[in-house]
Design a binder for these strands. Structure first.
Length: 347
DNA sequence: AAAACGGGGAA
DNA sequence: TTCCCAGTTTT
């Protein structure tokens, strides 16, 4: 049996029942694929169901306020996906008359749709012969062929892309793509893959050479930097001051409490000596709220401290991105996890 | 060619 | 802790 025959046979017996596999509607597939980028199926599932229910078609999606989309996206991470989806939906309405594209090249034009997602939508909606290349496919192919080229190097991406396309079953592109991804997720797992029951065991170079735990090879990235955030909880008559973050940094456009960042961890007396702090609050003494919160992102370590301050101590009156919001309207603002966790526990 | 961009589960 | 998840965009 060929590679694809084995994969497809395995798939027939082990495929996961996933809601987005029930449709050929490119809009619905797009919804699922963007949500699943760098996101585990179990984590993305509730978000998919929520978006599918709220926006049954691309026209509804495009007509929504970006704030509503961000609010629904809250907690999922990589928020640029949500903003790009909104842009893409508007593009589909304006340039394709609301008819979601299914052609690979047309899909690539949409913001947030890269090579993987374009191939996925094209193959799943029209059975177009485009091989997907995601983390699962990298892993399965690198082990099966015993390839040590790093999967995140330029040469590696090129090599695996070509190989993935060669391995594609051109008679069943959609099923083959689903199959190899499920195979990677369920059988050829990153840790402790189930080689003893593997249908590819006979031909798998990594298995035959006892290299399974060494593949795939991945270049290590830079290590995370440390950042220290000081959040100020300022309440006034049932309202609380919130600040909207700008672009060009983590959590773009999301809401949080007014914040001061320092390069070092600061004790309260050190914070009060800080020039920016004094401009904001003069010599008002902040009340420390709870312990330092450590929030880890893939590329930075954020150490956050929350302080309560009386509204009267606020010296600055005209900060464009700062505004008071009714406590009961707080859930309408899209907040990042660090803040939404705090709000849940304290409001 | 690298780095930025989130959050969470598993070992 | 470290790795990695149905990756894409920006620098």
């Amino acid at each position: 049996m060929s590679f694809s025959e084995r994969i497809l046979t395995w798939y027939a017996a082990h495929k996961r029942a996933l809601p987005w596999r029930e449709t050929k509607n490119p809009y619905v597939i797009w919804l699922s694929e963007i949500i699943l980028q760098q996101t585990r199926v179990e984590q993305g599932m509730p978000y998919f169901l929520r978006f599918f229910e709220t926006f049954p078609n691309v026209t509804k999606f495009a007509a929504a306020e970006e704030s509503e989309i961000l609010r629904l996206w809250q907690g999922l991470g990589y928020y640029s996906r949500a903003r790009n989806m909104h842009r893409a939906s508007k593009q589909v309405v304006e340039l394709h008359a609301g008819d979601f594209p299914t052609a690979y090249q047309a899909l690539l034009e949409l913001p947030g749709v890269g090579e993987y997602t374009a191939a996925a939508i094209a193959a799943f909606s029209k059975n177009s012969p485009h091989a997907v290349l995601d983390g699962n496919v990298f892993r399965v192919l690198s082990r099966y062929f015993g390839i040590h080229e790093p999967i995140n190097s330029t040469a590696g991406k090129k090599l695996f892309s070509k190989l993935a396309q060669e391995m594609l079953d051109r008679d069943h592109p959609g099923d083959y793509n689903q199959a190899i991804m499920d195979f990677g997720a369920l059988q050829c797992k990153p840790k402790n893959p189930d080689c003893s029951t593997c249908v590819l065991q006979i031909d798998c170079v990594a298995y035959q050479g006892s290299l399974v735990d060494q593949l795939p090879v991945k270049l290590k990235g830079k290590k995370s930097r440390d950042r220290f955030f000081h959040y100020f909880v300022i309440e006034k008559e049932g309202e609380v001051m919130m600040s909207q973050r700008g672009e060009g940094d983590v959590w773009a456009n999301l809401f949080e409490f007014p914040m001061l960042e320092t390069t070092e961890r600061l004790a309260v007396d050190q914070l009060m000596e800080n020039e920016a702090y004094q401009q904001l609050f003069g010599d008002a003494v902040p009340a420390v709220l709870g312990a330092e919160v450590k929030h880890l992102l893939s590329h930075q370590n954020i150490y956050a401290r929350f302080y309560k301050l009386p509204a009267e101590s606020l010296q600055i009156t005209k900060k464009r991105e700062w505004n008071y919001y009714l406590l009961e309207n707080l859930d309408k603002l899209a907040k990042h996890k660090l803040i939404s966790s705090f709000v849940e526990q304290n409001f």
